[in-house]
Simulated assay, not measured.
Amino acid sequence: MIKRIPLLFCFLTFHVLLSQNNIWEDPAINQINRLPSKATFYSYENLDLAIANQREKSKFFKSLNGDWKFNWVATPEESSDTFQENNFDVSKWKSIDVPSNWEMRGYGKAIYTNITYPFFSNYPNINHSDNPVGHYVKSFTIDESWKNKDVILHFGGVSSAFYVWINGAFVGYSEDTRLPSEFDIMKYLKTGENKIAVKVYRWSDGSYLEDQDTWRLSGIEREVFLQAVPKVRLSDFTIRTNLDENYENATLQIRPQFTVNIPDKFIEKVGYFNTTPLKTIVDDWTLTTQLIDTDGNVVIKENILKLGTSLGEKHPARDQVCFGMIEMDVKNPHKWSADEPYLYTALFSVKDDKGNLI
């Protein structure tokens, strides 16, 4: 009996210490349900809008910038655990403009410092008596045409850690102040009015890495928007532009990635070792790639790639696959420079097996 007491005491102590940990003080967690980072691009319903790149005119884009209901407290212990619930009354809260930093709106204190931490340094812990929290709430509606699409919630930048809820349901968590955070929120939405709630912590374990010579400010400091995207879509891509040895002609190389977020997408449900990957019902859908100059002219002949080429790509046991899944030769392109920052537009179109634009 005497030998068992220390073991029991150690177990209980260990359990208590674990239960006191916060995600925003855990270096092993810097996101929950955040989508993988990707290139910056937007989905449009027609070619004219895509070429013009006017996202605000697309019916599949909705900005959440503007006034949000806001409540600021000085410590995490004073923060609310229920403000995200649908029946929580925020009518008496003040408003704050998004994007902005709450220090510039009269909440807390702006701090300028170089390499000295602006908080008590005890990595990865944060002083709970000096970690203000901001509560944000906003209502919004979505278009009926979004019903059969995925809806992506985009935060351009939040300092320094935040939780997000839709209609009272927990969506996710993210750190990384200067990077976008995106979440797929379609399953949390409802017809009519929806509620988004965001809880922002000024400091987190990630703040130890964000030790730059700059002003230390807090809040939702970059844009917030929603975008409805197809269930089958180009989800990311990487581009290389390789010039020849004379710096005259170039090869445009593109490696696309696709999302196929539909049920029963596989034709067969059983895979086979050392053979072609499982085929999908969208393998014969296509990605058309066009390169357009600043005058809106198509520079070279379009490239057409079947989605199955990417979805069914085999990776060798040794070595690596060829990067350029799409390759297009461009004769004597305009070369970008600081004096002449000439940019081309890459236009991607996903079409089904009947040629319909998705």
Rank of each mutant, 00 (worst) to 15 (best):
S80K: 02
K149V: 04
P333Q: 02
F120H: 10
V229N: 00
F273E: 14
I196H: 00
L305H: 06
M1I: 12
T40Y: 15
E85Y: 13
D319H: 12
D26K: 09
Y272I: 10
G219E: 05
F162T: 03
L64P: 05
K92C: 06
F70N: 00
E302A: 10
M104E: 12
S174A: 14
V137L: 02
F120T: 07
V260H: 01
W93K: 04
G206M: 06
N131P: 01
N127M: 03
N21Y: 15
L307D: 06
T238A: 13
K301G: 13
D264N: 15
L209C: 09
M104Q: 13
P124M: 01
V198P: 02
E56H: 10
A338T: 12
S19F: 15
L307N: 06
V133G: 00
F237H: 11
T294Y: 15
M328D: 11
C10G: 12
P132Y: 01
N249H: 10
S218G: 10
T238V: 14
F60V: 01
F11P: 06
F162A: 03
G324A: 15
K149M: 15
L12I: 14
N87F: 07
N22K: 15
F140H: 01
R222L: 07
V137I: 09
Y247N: 11
N303A: 12
S19A: 15
S349L: 08
D97L: 15
L357M: 11
D339Q: 10
V229C: 00
W285P: 03
E56S: 10
V350R: 06
Y247M: 10
T288W: 04
L307E: 07
N125R: 12
K62V: 05
I292W: 06
P76H: 00
A110K: 12
V330Y: 07
T191W: 01
T191L: 05
R55T: 11
T259A: 12
L18R: 13
N33G: 02
L17G: 13
E85I: 04
A346C: 14
E175M: 13
V232Q: 01
R202V: 04
T345H: 15
F88L: 02
D143E: 13
S337A: 04
W93A: 04
N249L: 03
G308V: 05
T251P: 02
T13H: 09
S204D: 00
D353R: 13
S218E: 04
L35D: 03
N46H: 11
N131C: 02
T286E: 11
T288Y: 06
N297A: 08
Q257E: 15
F119E: 03
E221W: 14
K301N: 14
D89Q: 07
G66V: 01
W68I: 01
G168E: 05
N33H: 12
L47Q: 09
Y136L: 00
K69C: 00
Y117E: 02
G192Y: 00
F162W: 04
K335W: 10
P341G: 07
W215N: 05
N122W: 07
K354W: 08
I152F: 07
D26M: 14
E175L: 08
G157S: 08
E302W: 03
V73A: 00
F348P: 06
N356K: 14
L217G: 05
S160I: 09
G156P: 09
D283H: 06
P230F: 00
D329V: 08
S204T: 04
Y272T: 11
K351S: 13
L49F: 08
